[in-house]
């Protein structure tokens, strides 16, 4: 993880933002999980709990104009990018006020104005799409970078290899982020990959690659900074194997028989939110009163999110035929 230039130290403001954002992601998803169990909304529900430092560190290391595209475990990305969580909750409920107008659901959160280009449900499909978005940035000669996130399971898709090859050949400004929580649903990396050090996946394409401690906002932040710097200079993509852990099951129906309780407990001791909080206390970045205010704000936002989602209207019938084609008067076949 050598770096040529000494990175800027992380500011007090960044620590406080990390803390508040990650606490909001965590509390929001804990609530979402409860509501799902109460059958307040349907579909799938894949929680990001435990992995929050990956989004927090990625967002703090990027700037306006950069674009994020990710997989279906995507509730934390919009929150990290500044969306009020009520629009995420409304999307979970399939309400017309959701960030995708109730047409995407849990796996398809979008807000391009914040730099979030989905939420994609097909495992690994966003890998070539992310490279294609980066292709457009290079084509238009911007200095923007695309952050393309996917799980360790998606790292076994053929699309990854096709994309890595083209992204390196064409030096596209994309950062490939493996959110490596070690389990593709219920199957460990060890059981499905001949190599377990996933940064080696870049090796056949000479793609610069790093392993990163994904329970540390700082490590994620600095790794993304290095990769973004490389991309902005025109040197092309970087692969980051960001090692993280999800405390919850793959989805809400996962009995988690593939791992031990001890393993989960071990990672919970490395909790990124607790670590950031400890740093804040150690460095006296916040008074007890300020921390209390943050917690209150988070709590209020979660309460507001539920209320907003429950009170929002469902999409009306005519919306079924809207947003299917950009063409306004597409002649749909309508039968009985």
């Amino acid at each position: 993880m050598a770096t040529s230039t000494k990175p800027k130290p992380i500011s007090k403001a960044t620590y406080l933002k990390w803390y508040e954002d990650m606490l909001l992601m965590r509390k929001f998803e804990e609530k979402a999980g409860q509501l799902y169990i109460q059958q307040k909304f349907g579909g799938f529900c894949h929680l990001y709990i435990g992995q929050e430092a990956v989004v927090a560190g990625a967002v703090s290391a990027t700037k306006a104009g950069d674009k994020h595209i990710t997989a279906y475990r995507d509730h934390a990305h919009p929150i990290g990018l500044g969306m009020h969580p009520k629009y995420v909750m409304a999307e979970l409920y399939g309400k017309s006020t959701g960030c995708s107008k109730g047409k995407g659901g849990s796996m398809h959160m979008f807000d391009t104005s914040l730099g979030l280009w989905g939420g994609h449900g097909i495992v690994g499909a966003q890998i070539p799409m992310g490279a294609g978005m980066a292709f457009a940035e290079k084509y238009n000669k911007t200095k923007n970078v695309v952050l393309c996130s996917f799980g360790d399971g998606a790292a076994r898709q053929g699309a990854l290899h096709e994309t890595f090859n083209m992204a390196m050949t064409w030096k596209l400004p994309v950062i490939f982020i493996i959110e490596n929580n070690n389990y593709a649903m219920g199957t460990s990396v060890q059981r499905t990959s001949n190599i377990t050090d996933l940064k080696k996946l870049g090796a056949a394409y000479d793609m610069p690659a790093e392993s990163v401690d994904g329970m540390s906002c700082e490590e994620v932040h600095y790794a993304i900074l290095r990769a973004a710097d490389r991309a902005r200079k025109g040197d092309g993509p970087t692969l980051l194997d960001i090692q993280t852990y999800r405390y919850k099951g793959h989805s809400m129906s996962d009995p988690q028989k593939y791992r031990t309780k001890e393993e989960v407990e071990k990672y919970k001791k490395l909790d990124p939110i607790q670590k950031v909080l400890e740093t804040i206390k150690e460095k006296k970045y916040a008074t007890a009163k300020l921390l209390e205010e943050i917690e209150e704000r988070v709590k209020d936002k979660v309460v507001e999110s539920v209320k907003f989602a429950e009170e929002s209207p469902l999409p009306e019938a005519h919306e079924l035929y809207e947003d299917v084609y950009a063409e306004a008067d597409y002649p749909f076949i309508k039968e009985y």
Partner: peptide, 21 residues
């Protein structure tokens, strides 16, 4: 010119179109 990788370059095309090309 692309390599022989239909899924990959179709997806790169989709991403480029999403991003305005």
């Amino acid at each position: 010119d692309t390599p022989i990788a239909e899924l990959g370059f179709a997806g790169i095309g989709v991403g480029a179109a999403m991003n305005g090309l």
